[in-house]
Design a protein around this nucleic acid. Structure first.
Length: 290
RNA sequence: GGCGACGUAGCCAAGUGGUAAGGCAGAGGUCUGCAAAACCUUCAUCGCGGGUUCGAUUCCCGCCGUCGCCU
């Protein structure tokens, strides 16, 4: 198994495509927004043609109107891995969503953590200022791991602690052995690539795509609609900002995101890094797969 | 040439006679069911020179620059 990781627009997909075609492999996407249907251009999914040439998994598996999350990703991903293995094909996990990659490859036992929408809803309605205090009372160790002001994370920890009636279990299985390739272009090159990608989205019709999503009445608060750009494209469609501004804001969001992605990948010592503007890791991948 | 206003971090911008809010951008980081999310940290001695003062970014003078109006 091969994993190709890196920030947005670093060239992961293209590399994965070449590797998959060369090896007769299949691609498993680790991207939290490409799972949604009807969000093709804005999430920079592989094209129909590419998907016809190489089997892709975990793309278009959810409706924009529903919530997809790590646990579902982990289950779907493990199923995909198993089916590819049964076919005897090489698996290429490709992505940018650090948590998803970790859930799939590092053996996190997410399913063992309890979940109860009612408990969560109750916690969310409470004063966030008291949440950290309460977590510290139940699980001092977990309390040190969450920022006191991060209400969303606090709620989740408390949700588990409340249901479990004690400290949050911290279970971790064995990582799946895989060659991990990281793509890290020079920052300036990445920034240029990001802007270029955003402009290409406009040319490809993100505005129409956004119009269609808005017309379907997809709730703007859903995770799907937090995919980069859509709020700005929508604002432009409403006449609130001009197109250049929408492009600039979207590029900015993606830039900031790419930095956060890197903090996730940088701390994985198993990743072998390449500057794709200088070196092509394809042969290393082919060799490792052989 | 005259009159007026302004000159605070890369950008926008508040402010005070006692050593400078905030926002954006930038950089670094956290992360076990929303993760393209949520959150944290970090980043200036206030155009230049002189004066008044215990002390000036804040007051006064000059210079430079920008903008506006006038001739």
């Amino acid at each position: 198994m091969i994993a190709i990781v890196g920030p947005t627009a670093s060239g992961k997909s293209a590399l994965a495509m070449r590797a998959a075609e060369r090896l007769g492999g299949e691609i498993v996407s680790a991207d939290s927004r490409q799972v949604y249907r009807r969000m093709d251009i804005g999430t920079a999914k592989p094209t129909i043609g590419e998907r016809a040439r190489v089997p892709h998994h975990l793309i278009d598996v959810a409706d924009p109107g529903e919530r997809y999350d790590v646990l579902r990703y982990q289950r779907d991903g493990q199923a995909a891995l198993a089916s590819i293995r049964s076919r005897g094909h090489v698996t290429l996990v490709v992505g940018g969503t650090g948590l998803y990659i970790r859930a799939l490859l590092d053996g996190l036992d997410l399913a063992s953590l309890p979940h109860d929408p009612a408990v969560r809803a109750r916690l969310e309605s409470e004063d966030p200022a008291t949440l950290h205090e309460r977590l510290r009372a139940i699980d001092p160790d977990a309390a040190t791991r969450v920022d006191p002001r991060n209400a969303r994370r606090l709620v989740r920890y408390l949700e588990v602690a409340t249901i479990a009636g004690g400290p949050v279990p911290r279970v971790r299985g064995a990582p799946i052995p895989a060659l991990r390739i990281g793509l890290r272009p020079p920052r300036e090159a990445l920034i240029a690539a990001i802007e270029q990608r955003v402009r290409a989205m406009v040319d490809a019709g993100v505005l129409d795509e956004t119009r269609a999503l808005v017309a379907r009445g997809v709730d703007p608060r859903l995770p799907s609609m937090s995919a980069h750009g859509y709020v700005h494209w929508a604002a432009h469609l409403r006449g609130e900002i001009d197109l250049e501004t929408a492009v600039a804001l979207t590029s900015r969001d993606v830039r900031a995101y790419s930095r956060r992605q890197m903090t996730w990948f940088r701390r994985d010592p198993a990743i072998r890094w390449f500057d794709p503007t200088a070196t092509d890791p394809l042969e290393d991948i082919v060799e490792a797969a052989a």
